[in-house]
Design a protein around this nucleic acid. Sequence first.
DNA 1: AATTAAGTTCCAAATAATGGAATAGCGATA
DNA 2: TATCGCTATTCCATTATTTGGAACTTAATT
Lengths: 265, 265
Amino acid sequence: MNSNGDGPAQSRETGTLGKLMVLLDLVTHADAPLRFTDILALAGQPRGTLHRQLSHLVEEGLLELDGDGRYAPGLRLLDFAARSWARNEFRLIAEPHLADLQQATGETVHLGVLRGQSIIYLDKVEGRQPVRMYSQIGNASPCYCTGVGKAALSLLPAESLGDLIAGLSFTSFTASTHVSAETLLEEIREIADQGFAFDREEHEAGIRCVAAPVWSEDRTFIGGVSITGPAYRLSMELLRQWAVPVQLAAGRIMEGMRVRLGPRR
Amino acid sequence: MNSNGDGPAQSRETGTLGKLMVLLDLVTHADAPLRFTDILALAGQPRGTLHRQLSHLVEEGLLELDGDGRYAPGLRLLDFAARSWARNEFRLIAEPHLADLQQATGETVHLGVLRGQSIIYLDKVEGRQPVRMYSQIGNASPCYCTGVGKAALSLLPAESLGDLIAGLSFTSFTASTHVSAETLLEEIREIADQGFAFDREEHEAGIRCVAAPVWSEDRTFIGGVSITGPAYRLSMELLRQWAVPVQLAAGRIMEGMRVRLGPRR
DNA sequence: AATTAAGTTCCAAATAATGGAATAGCGATA
DNA sequence: TATCGCTATTCCATTATTTGGAACTTAATT
């Protein structure tokens, strides 16, 4: 009963680990540090069991327990993530092309990949203000209401796509958010035809984007590149024009992957 | 040979979880994705056991297995970290004071906290180029050769300090790196007296810094703020002058924590 | 002081992890 | 194409860990 819209995508209940990950999810998704009793209610586990599980997570640095008995995400997670990010080949190869795209348009550029039902943003290049770390990078967003997400979906074979969409539970973030599998599927087909996707203020009011699909040779990374900005500055006409440079950038990233990894595969 | 001095700090072998975390550590610390056999050699576990453990980690998105059978850190780690970072109160409170310090000096400012034997960088404010995400944030560095690290150590009570230092294994990163508990302990005492610490190119040749200790009321966060830069630009005299603004910034951060959290504790 | 709530510890029973061995997959070589 | 050698995967009786109800401690409240 702890499912909440875009929550944990997979969870085949991997024995002990799976149960612990559910707890980590609970704590990291909470708006504020949780007390033991709060988690007890959310997790629906016996007190003794829950207590030991939390203790183990704290001992490993995945959670932290402050002086008031409140559990917060542990900083060891940062270390893991920093390594994960620093060495990610897909991101490393995409980096210069994202920068070029940002230069060409002056707007914010994102790189994201599909993981389960979510898009995880791997990189972001912003124009004006110095980038606010982790502001977007690492964030998981729904696939059905983001440009990158829909671009990624358009790459899936019919069957996987059907399965994935069947498993979605739609949250209406704005008036334009898709709330039915039918209309979403219809747009995905259109995107597959034309080779790029729009986000027409579907995730956040006043924010539009145009995205193109990107994937790695071995399909480990299925995602997209996007240009994002405020609706008042980015007319739909302008976005339509930008579809071309976004697709070109996507193409260059894929070419980069082929050169870097292709020969050996 | 991928052990680099500041490896896994704790690990009380928390049953099943502990063993899995050792594997996660192995993979995230590796310079390149590892194949099954590589991990087999490093982990020293029976094949069957290792295989199932890795499968569980992959199922949970903590590791990823590419088409060539190579294991890399999983992107789910990014999502966890992004949440962990975004809501960290210590960082949120410190943020404006770090920015002020950067403005005042024009050099790079760091905020780090002690976790086990490592300093984990929570934030970074850089002057020139737009911040390269995760570049430093989240990174774990040794406590005995960084300004923030030594500042943090100077806050520990004698006994804990002794225990921690006794458990260190020193890696000589540069000619100036402390390589003995004695000289380190001596400098820590000096730092405790004067209230600030230098890094005299001890971690990276050509890089100096001055740091001041910061801690939260409940001692959950013990760390420091620092100004870092190239030795040719930052003379020791200049660093000595900057000790004052760094200590002031540290004081303001602690005051911020007191205001925000103090009343209720 | 009495009462309620919050957190911690205990231990027999249930469950999951272990690890040795057999099996399957895949390139390279003959 | 058959065979070898290496790598990865599956299987299952044994072993170790987790489970969860209950008792216990501690802190807050009336």
